[in-house]
Design a protein around this nucleic acid. Sequence first.
DNA 1: CTCAAGCGAGAGCACTGCTCTCCCAAGCAG
DNA 2: CTGCTTGGGAGAGCAGTGCTCTCGCTTGAG
Lengths: 230, 230
Amino acid sequence: MTTPQGARARARMEVTTAIKDEARRQLAAEGAAKLSLRAVARELGMVSSALYRYFPSRDDLLTALIIDAYDSLGEAAETAHAAAAGAAPAQRWVVVCEAVRGWALTHPHEYALIYGSPVPGYSAPDTTIPPAARVALVLIGILREAFERRGLARTPVPAELAPEARRMADELVPGLPPEVAVAMVAAWAQLFGLVGFELFGQFKGVVEERERFFRHAAAQLAHGVGLVFP
Amino acid sequence: MTTPQGARARARMEVTTAIKDEARRQLAAEGAAKLSLRAVARELGMVSSALYRYFPSRDDLLTALIIDAYDSLGEAAETAHAAAAGAAPAQRWVVVCEAVRGWALTHPHEYALIYGSPVPGYSAPDTTIPPAARVALVLIGILREAFERRGLARTPVPAELAPEARRMADELVPGLPPEVAVAMVAAWAQLFGLVGFELFGQFKGVVEERERFFRHAAAQLAHGVGLVFP
DNA sequence: CTCAAGCGAGAGCACTGCTCTCCCAAGCAG
DNA sequence: CTGCTTGGGAGAGCAGTGCTCTCGCTTGAG
């Protein structure tokens, strides 16, 4: 991230990324369960104990991969969104959803790492939160723009949820109405439900034309969040 | 399942369920990653190799636990539905969704086992399909009843999805309109997206009043699938 | 130019899944 | 009721894992 000061620091960074690259290769090939520190070290021509100079434990390596995966997915969503810059908000929403799905299909094991069951002893370090938010930020940006163009319908929220809705709006989407915050978060979770079910085989024997199905479901999600198709 | 013929067969069943019970205990305590055949055997006072007389591999044990988990979750959904027998379909839909969430919160590791990332080398044996369908069947039952009472709205499906929608309806919900099949499957996946996000910590710092939030989201799901609140 | 810091190598510990062989007791057929 | 077969437990062992510790060598920073 920062400029490497000395040669020593640069070498350290290089080895660190080499380890991560090889680990990512093994992750993509076999899945997180089969990712072995010793195998990574072996492939890099070093001995396993040397690897502990760079990552204090296997879980820390996994955490680094998790952050990278979040960033990769976030970037995929952002570039897809940028490429659809001219389209209407509702259409861009669908495009971003499809980008998420596409990334998941090309990086199944990395997707499983970040949106599947938490692998280590249930520890999601706070370092993962900012990169994890990138997809959500793209979606929020679409909503904000639609709102400013007065192109956002609202579904009312029951009274028992009103205070929480206000709090969510303040913290997540300041300036947007509370109903939008609630709908947004729900759609966000539901999007990953759709992607996860397809990826983890739950649609086997149920949905065949998955791309068309997903496009429609994403459009319905857009509808649910208040976006209107022109 | 079948009546144990001889004493030998009965003993085998007893040991088998003892193994599963102990394995489930460890699963609930530590998660699937830490489930160890040797630890199970140790706790049962036998040696690890003896366990292979009952389960040919660790993955087979996990598969057995997966099936049990699906059944447990399905049963939770069914009893919740039965307990709400008098209510309107839309309300029963919400009740069943809440039962799924409740089961997930009380059995997090078992939930992760069945709806998290597939643990073994990506093998979901077909034996898991029928128990996995139980929750969906409950939801379908609600829809069917609502449909017969003419209490089911339909959201049109785009032309490109129409053939697939027909196929899905024929295979999943024969007698119900294709639009319902599509909406049902989407809602089904989205339900588990909501539950999974809450369970796996994605709502940390985002949603605080999770029960209220979920109830509202489930109601919106019911709305999306065509159920109307009286 | 020196010398500590950083890093790799190696051995080793405790653990895992899984296999194979041995051997005994219990259940079944006669 | 007896004999035999077979199911299943015990133990050793293999290959692999994560992780620790100690020992030196290099090399870059002061």
